[in-house]
Amino acid sequence: MNEIPTIESIKLTPTRVPLPEGPWGDQIHHVENIEVVIAEVTGSNGLTGVGFSHTSGWCGATIAQLDEEIIPDVIGLKVSPQGLWRRSYKYIHDVGGAGVTTHALSALDIAYWDLLAKSLDVSLYDLLGKVRDRVPLYGSGINLNLTIEEVIEQVKRWKAEGYICAKVKVGKPDIEEDVERLTKIQEAVPGFPLAVDANQGWTLPAALRAFKKFDHLDLLWIEEPLPSDDIVGHKVLRERVNTPIALGENTYTLNQFNQHFEQGSCDYVQADLGRVGGITGYLDIAAAARAHNLPMTPHFVMELSASLLSCIPNIYASEMTDGGTWTALGIFKPSDNIKNGYWTPPTAPGHGLEVNWDYVNAHKF
């Protein structure tokens, strides 16, 4: 009989992963590496669950330190992910309800779920209850710095690989250059749905102008047009524009998402497993989004995010960023889960993702 273990020990590995193809950039970011905190939770049955959180190049040590503060409070407790999540969130809430706190919870929570599924000798996705056997993907690029010819080749490749749509960056100093680039993409790849990502780079007046300029392009969505914490601004914007708005990669809690849902400012929900408190936090947000008939289109930790979408009724697709999957970054060992534009979740016990420990340990700090 498979029994649910108690937590015996927790080991943390903070690592600074270089970007193989050079720095990432958009309207407001310049990212030279990804800092990842990996948590290994070992149970009383000798099995180990693995979880992770991430930042765009800084504050990984801060997240690891907060996890260190949580560890003594959970040693010896039964591996019950939702109960542990709520206990730890209450424990650390006074130092912040979102951000570093939810990042820290993510690493531990994902490890709890992995350990629980391994202890029951089932796939995490069978444990949660799959509603589909495969998940559609969309192609995405960190490509504001690329020539339009290079971006067109990206989009053509994504379509050829069976992806459901494409997403490209916008935010050139002259909005007319963005319009010209998007027009050329649509002319080169007609009929292929196109979304864009503004990466929080506009003020409200600039966003209103950009949406108007893009109106005739019939974009699938415009992502993060305003700073992520400007909840009122997104409401005002959504009431005055036609193109759908996607947001969530820099939104951290159920309450924050629910404010967007209630005021109608969000059309696609891009919560990030590594930032919203892991699987427990993500499932809460997905359920709230479902109540508002909104689809999940997750950001980052692509391999786990895509797998988790197999258990969520309300989805559109999972993002696959060129050079941004954790396999491409060297964090996970390669797999063959992608075929014809779809992701098939692993079937091994737990979440089924194998950390490339030789590479990770070579870059730990």
Rank of each mutant, 00 (worst) to 15 (best):
L12A: 04
T15C: 15
E21R: 15
Q27M: 06
I28C: 04
E32V: 07
V37S: 07
N45H: 06
G46A: 07
L47Q: 03
V50T: 14
S56Y: 14
A64D: 10
G76L: 09
P81A: 11
G83I: 08
A98N: 07
T102A: 01
H103Y: 15
Y112E: 04
D114I: 15
L116G: 03
A117F: 12
V122W: 06
V122Y: 04
L124N: 06
L127K: 13
D133C: 09
V135D: 02
V135K: 08
Y138D: 03
S140H: 11
N145H: 15
I152K: 09
V155M: 08
A166S: 11
V168T: 15
D174C: 05
I175Q: 10
R181P: 02
Q186K: 14
E187A: 15
V189R: 08
A195S: 14
Q200Y: 06
P205G: 09
A206Y: 00
S228P: 02
K235L: 08
T253S: 06
L273E: 00
G274V: 12
G278H: 13
I279N: 05
A288Q: 11
S305T: 01
A306L: 11
C311S: 13
I315N: 07
S318Y: 01
D322Q: 13
G323Y: 09
G324F: 09
T325L: 10
I331G: 03
F332M: 04
N340I: 07
T344C: 02
A348F: 01
G352C: 10
L353N: 04
W357G: 01
H363N: 15
